[in-house]
């Protein structure tokens, strides 16, 4: 279990460093991390399935901005590990992992405060003319603290929690797991709605409806939708922006209420 816990902790390090030093290539997302967990624990199908479900639920949660949302990325790794290592269903494992991720998020607050203090260390280093020390605060210490912020909670959760989870799972009644299953579908709807709330504006609502009906009635898959969407968008933007007289004519086109996401974290 020690080795397994260390490997999962290291997957956590990959997850956090994706947005720290790789500009956020989305390797932090559940779909990718759960696949890694599945590979590491020798159960790829479960990893893929859990990853796809958790990805859907957290689609609308983006870890940008100063406000700290529940850390679904951390929860995903722990959930997937519990789902593979114990008899827990994905939904039960998720319910057990979320409290840990909330705790992990609190550690995140501490780390970001600590790094604010490192800023002062860097300020003083510059005053003393120790220039290299100033940027080392960023690339060495920043990277290290963020890595630990994910490694430690995941390691502890898997190392100490797996047996406990196993004993809890054996007494959970069926109505509870069925209910959690529906709850996870609600969470998926919530995740998509959260996404919609940042994207939707009056002018473009019709395209959301179009995407829904193309799948609902015609049963097309997402790849087909994406391809048609690009074609429609290119054609329409060609029409729209060619007829516009100039930059001034763009003012009233409804993009003004486009709500860009918050700042980065």
């Amino acid at each position: 279990m020690l080795g397994v816990s260390i490997i999962l902790g290291l997957i956590g390090v990959v997850c956090i460093l994706d947005s720290r030093i790789l500009g956020r290539l989305n390797m932090e997302r559940p779909l990718f991390t759960c696949t890694l967990v599945g590979l590491a624990l020798g159960d790829l199908p479960t990893g893929l399935l859990v990853g796809a479900s958790l990805e859907l639920m957290s689609l609308g949660i983006v870890n940008i901005g100063a406000a700290a949302p529940p850390d679904m990325n951390m929860a995903a790794i722990i959930t997937c590990a519990f789902a593979i290592l114990t008899d827990a269903t994905m939904e039960t494992a998720l319910a057990l992992a979320v409290p840990i991720a909330v705790l992990g998020q609190m550690i995140g607050v501490v780390v970001r405060t600590l790094l604010a203090n490192l800023t002062h260390v860097a300020d003083r280093a510059i005053e003393q003319g120790r220039f290299d020390r100033a940027w080392q605060m960023h690339i060495v210490w920043g990277t290290l603290f963020y890595s630990l912020m994910y490694f430690i909670p995941i390691f502890l959760a898997v190392y100490m929690g797996t047996d406990m989870v196993q004993s809890i799972v054996s007494v959970v009644p069926a109505w509870f797991t069925d209910g959690l299953n529906l709850g996870s579908k609600f969470l998926t709807a919530y995740g998509i709605a959260l996404l919609l709330s940042t994207m939707l504006n009056k002018e473009l609502t019709v395209f959301f409806v179009l995407g829904f009906f193309l799948v609902g009635y015609l049963g097309l898959n997402i790849t087909a939708i994406a391809i048609f969407a690009v074609i429609i968008a290119v054609v329409l933007s060609g029409l729209k922006f060619r007829t516009a007289a100039g930059p001034g004519a763009l003012a009233g086109d409804g993009l003004d209420d486009y709500d860009p996401l918050e700042d980065d974290l």
Binding site: L195, L210, F212, I222, F228
Partner: peptide
């Protein structure tokens, strides 16, 4: 905006 919303609708 168009591509994103159509994909979300499909989801």
């Amino acid at each position: 905006g168009i591509v994103g919303l159509m994909v979300v609708g499909a989801m």
